[in-house]
Design a protein around this nucleic acid. Structure first.
Lengths: 208, 208
DNA sequence: ATGAAACATGAATCAGTATTCATGTTTACC
DNA sequence: GGTAAACATGAATACTGATTCATGTTTCAT
């Protein structure tokens, strides 16, 4: 009676509980990874919780121990993709101080990444409709970093002067489009060839 | 009895019946146009037939007189968007014989179009998940035309030599990304400024 | 004018599936 | 070695929304 009722527990209710055990950790990861595969392959709406949990080898209810909604697991995938891509590119351009060289290395790394993770690529695209906020964050963060890099390169005299903001979006667009050519349109051209052509365009433009 | 039953009619069953009357024509157009607005605004999955028909001012059942499924109306919108964009750009570059000038005019026309039709822009993006076939056709058709133009320009000595296929995808990506900056990220930079920066990049590249 | 085809209605059907829940099982810690 | 929290189960719930259909109304060729 004097137990101050209804305060001391939120066991299986709280949204997106973090696991507190090794077992829980593993299960959560299994679900997230299954979600990546299932949603990537069938799209958000055609992917069902049943498919995801079955792919993960757990019961349907288990999903809701770790994720509050179907949308939440999707959001996390988008976030993860953002971190992975930025990390991959940062790694690949580490220690390259000439911007044009870095541009080439970054594009190569990006294209290799999307070829290796076609599911994640599609998931980001779909975020525009499923989780616009996550989508915006993904591209705005990316664009910001890109622009900062271009400004620095311009100040260092490594590239010509120009509007870094527009350039950043344009260059992002090149990467995105070439990535899509690989993943969605299944072009089989070798990445180095694609990068060589694209880099020539980026460095020198179309002028004869 | 001798009426050869079940052969002589398919009145309200056939998929996507074309209208045969002025009235029907008008109704179909009203539904298509309502669908553009509703799907563009809420996305394919959150848009319901009820919303579309209500926006069009007809009853729910009327939808199925003209479209076999929800997906079909979507497909038609993607197709229409493709025709419109190609037509708009063709018109804007009509009579411009220098490729770099045409590139500038085409980009301007494209950006103005997407700013005027944000709904259609989003619909094409979503087609990747709702109607992949239509999506592929949209971009493959576009890329093909683009590539042909670049090949011709190269032969005419108007642009430097290079892989037209990769260049076409890269340039498409620039347009797409800048269009998205306008529509999705609601940048308010004037189109001529964007085009000027982008065109400088396209013509001259980043080299100092 | 009139009958058949075309068009329109909106309530009922029907299936899919996200989410919940009552009930067990396992783990961590004393 | 016992117990409370954490984890797991899968059947039941609950709702949404696409599609159908039986029934009217309008149009148009003759």
């Amino acid at each position: 009676m004097a137990k101050s009722p209804g305060q001391a527990k939120a066991p299986q209710k709280a949204p997106g509980n973090q696991p507190k055990t090794a077992r829980g950790e593993a299960t959560r990861k299994a679900i997230l990874s299954a979600a990546e595969r299932v949603i990537g392959a069938r799209g958000y709406n055609d992917a069902s919780i049943g498919q995801i949990t079955s792919e993960a080898g757990v019961a349907q209810g288990t999903f809701y121990i770790y994720f509050a909604t179907k949308e939440q697991v999707f959001s996390e995938l988008v976030l993860e993709m953002g971190r992975l891509v930025r990390h991959t590119i940062a790694e690949a351009t580490q220690g390259i101080f000439d911007r044009l060289d870095a541009e080439k290395a970054g594009l190569t790394a990006f294209l290799e990444f999307v070829r290796a993770h076609p599911d994640l690529y599609r998931i980001v695209q779909e975020a525009l409709f499923v989780d616009p906020q996550a989508y915006r964050e993904y591209y705005l963060t990316f664009a910001d970093g890109y622009r900062a890099g271009l400004v620095a390169a311009e100040e260092a005299g490594q590239i010509s002067a120009g509007d870094a903001e527009t350039r950043a979006w344009a260059l992002m667009g090149i990467g995105r489009s070439l990535g899509e050519q690989l993943v969605v349109f299944e072009a089989d051209k070798p990445i180095p060839e694609i990068v060589a052509s694209a880099h020539d365009l980026i460095a020198n433009g179309l002028k004869p």
